[in-house]
Deep mutational scan, measured.
Amino acid sequence: TIDEIIKALEQAVKDNKPIQVGNYTVTSADEAEKLAKKLKKEY
């Protein structure tokens, strides 16, 4: 679900690790936030 994706992003940001979500690779908190907002609009 979208919530699980967002939790995974938040965890990756805390661990400061890049995370791959679908076609996106998120490497920073800023990118994670942008991706989360984008995904919320889509779903």
Rank of each mutant, 00 (worst) to 15 (best):
A12Y: 14
K37Y: 00
I5E: 01
K14I: 13
E33A: 12
A36R: 07
S28Q: 02
Q20H: 10
I5L: 11
Q11H: 04
L35F: 00
K41N: 13
K7L: 09
K7N: 05
E33W: 05
I19M: 09
E33V: 08
Q11W: 01
V21Q: 02
E33K: 12
K17S: 05
S28V: 02
Y43A: 13
A29C: 11
K17A: 05
K40G: 06
N16D: 06
A8Q: 10
V26K: 02
D3G: 09
E33Q: 10
D3W: 15
K40H: 08
N16S: 05
A29G: 08
Y24G: 10
I6A: 01
K17V: 12
G22V: 02
A8M: 14
D30M: 11
A8G: 04
V13I: 14
Y43K: 09
K40F: 08
G22L: 06
L35G: 02
D3P: 09
I2A: 04
E42N: 06
T25R: 04
A8K: 08
K34P: 00
I2G: 02
I5R: 02
N16H: 06
K34T: 11
N16Q: 08
G22W: 04
I2V: 09
L9N: 01
V13T: 06
S28D: 13
K7C: 08
P18A: 11
E31Q: 08
T25D: 14
Q11I: 05
I19R: 04
I6K: 02
V13D: 01
K7M: 12
I19F: 08
E31N: 00
I5G: 00
P18L: 07
T1R: 11
A8F: 05
E31H: 02
E10M: 13
V26D: 07
L9A: 03
E33I: 12
A29V: 08
K14V: 11
K40P: 01
K14N: 06
K40R: 13
E10G: 03
D15M: 09
K38D: 09
G22I: 02
I6F: 06
N16G: 15
T27D: 14
L9I: 08
I5V: 09
I19T: 10
K41D: 15
L35N: 01
N16V: 02
K37I: 13
K14Q: 08
K38S: 08
V26I: 10
E42M: 14
A12C: 12
E4K: 07
G22A: 04
D3Q: 14
Y24A: 13
T1M: 11
E33S: 09
V21T: 03
V13Y: 08
A36V: 15
T1P: 09
T25F: 15
K38Y: 13
G22Y: 03
E31I: 04
A29M: 08
K14P: 01
A12D: 00
L9P: 00
K37H: 10
A12H: 04
Q11L: 08
D15L: 08
K34N: 09
I19A: 05
A8R: 11
E10N: 06
K41F: 11
A12N: 03
D15N: 09
A29Y: 05
I5H: 03
N23D: 15
D15Y: 05
I5T: 02
L9W: 00
Y43R: 12
K7T: 07
K7A: 13
D15V: 05
A12I: 10
Q11V: 06
Q20M: 12
I6E: 00
T25P: 12
K40A: 10
Y43H: 11
A32K: 03
Q20R: 14
Q20N: 11
K14D: 05
K34L: 12
Y43F: 13
K34Q: 14
I2T: 04
E10D: 07
E42W: 13
D30A: 13
K17M: 14
A36E: 04
K41Y: 11
I2C: 14
I19P: 01
T25G: 11
E10R: 06
A36W: 07
T25M: 11
D30I: 12
A8E: 05
I5M: 08
E42H: 06
Y43C: 15
N23T: 04
P18E: 04
D15Q: 10
Y43W: 12
T1I: 09
E4G: 05
I2N: 03
L39G: 01
Y43T: 10
T1L: 10
N23P: 15
K17P: 01
I6W: 03
L39Y: 03
L9M: 06
D3E: 14
D30R: 06
V21I: 15
Y43I: 14
T25I: 15
Y24R: 14
V26T: 07
D3M: 12
D3V: 12
P18V: 08
T1E: 10
P18I: 08
N23C: 15
A36H: 05
I19K: 03
T1Y: 13
A36S: 06
Q20E: 10
L9T: 00
V13L: 07
A29R: 06
A32G: 03
T27Q: 11
I6G: 00
L35D: 01
K41R: 10
T1W: 15
E31W: 03
A8H: 05
E31A: 05
V13R: 05
E33N: 08
E42S: 05
K37R: 13
I2Y: 11
Q11G: 05
K34G: 07
K38R: 13
P18M: 08
K17T: 11
D15A: 10
K37D: 14
D15K: 04
Q11P: 01
N16E: 05
N23F: 03
K34Y: 10
K41S: 14
D3N: 09
P18H: 05
V21N: 04
A32C: 07
T1G: 09
Y24F: 14
A29H: 03
I6Q: 02
Q20P: 02
V13G: 05
A12Q: 03
N16K: 09
G22Q: 03
E31F: 04
L39C: 07
A12T: 04
V13N: 03
D30H: 08
K14S: 09
N23Q: 12
K41W: 12
K37F: 00
D30Y: 10
K40V: 07
A8N: 04
L35P: 00
D30G: 08
V21L: 14
T25L: 15
